[in-house]
Computed example of a mutant assay.
Amino acid sequence: MRRILLFLGTNIAVLLLLAIVCRLFGIDQMAAANGYGGMTGLLLYAAVFGMGGAFISLALSKWIAKRSTGARVITQPQNETERWLVDTVRRHAQSAGIGMPEVAIYDAPEMNAFATGMTKNSSLVAVSSGLLQQMDREQAGAVLGHEIGHVANGDMVTLTLIQGVLNTLVILAARIVGRAIDGWMSGGRDENRGGGGIGYFVVVMVLQVVFGLFASIIVAAFSRWREFRADSAGARFAGRGAMISALQRLKANHGESTLPNTIAAFGISGPLADGLRRLFMSHPPLDERIAALQNSR
């Protein structure tokens, strides 16, 4: 329940902030006049809500991750395991040429880890208690290298840019097509009316869902590709054998994850699917990732 309330509260806060930005800069008035104030007004409206929402989510990602998982940041290692964890992350970060991330542990039974943050030098790397308990040091070190690879590759920012651009295009396309369909359905009677008829709003909502599904497929495809690249980074930092061993050990998770939906795509592994649902998978099957490493040179 706490995660659901946090998710809803964050999204409401994002919408309120965007609404205030639109009001302060007059974008809402521009968008309302003459059907979003022409193409310029519509584009501004779509960009503010599409790009703005994505980047606000990125800016809040560390805060959301810590509170939704209950992650405890290690400010001063309390035992040998925590010292090893911090030292390993520091070593990988130095090898990658990035700033030292915050290191955290969250309580979860499955083997998992994630990285997030606004920039390469202001990131968070967190591992589950289950991973520390069920993996040996070599395997866990490879997982940490994988997460550092995400940070060094700028995957969080790139994913946000892709999501933001696609959000903007979805908002823009839904309204352009929606106005065309509404004009056709009304026989042109509403073409001089700025807000459009009820049919326009219904069509726009339906189109945003449809176009949003196609956008999700593109985002998921990039997410799967970045996992292969992060696996390569883990192999580079900790050794290919260690990374392969870690992925083989992860198969014991059986696709289980307690990560909230807001950060599930940032985990070391994700749930499997078949058929058309494979298009929406954020992670490739572990067997494919293992094969890619085994075939790499």
Rank of each mutant, 00 (worst) to 15 (best):
A252F: 01
L247H: 07
A93V: 00
P284H: 06
S129H: 09
A13C: 11
R2C: 01
G99H: 02
F211I: 07
G196K: 04
L18V: 02
A273F: 10
A265H: 12
S129Y: 04
R67F: 14
P285A: 06
G183L: 13
Q29L: 01
A65K: 00
A180G: 02
E256D: 12
L85A: 06
L8W: 08
I74A: 03
M51N: 11
L213E: 09
G196W: 06
R175I: 05
A246E: 04
G212W: 03
A31K: 05
L5D: 07
R224H: 09
A96G: 07
R83K: 03
G53Q: 02
P271L: 02
G97T: 02
V209G: 14
R277Q: 11
A173T: 08
G50W: 09
L131K: 02
L18N: 01
R226V: 05
F7Y: 10
R67Y: 10
G141P: 06
I105W: 00
I12K: 02
Y200T: 12
L159R: 11
A140D: 06
R23C: 01
I20Y: 00
L43F: 08
Q294R: 15
V210T: 02
G267R: 04
A13D: 02
F25W: 12
G267A: 11
T40A: 14
G99E: 04
P101F: 08
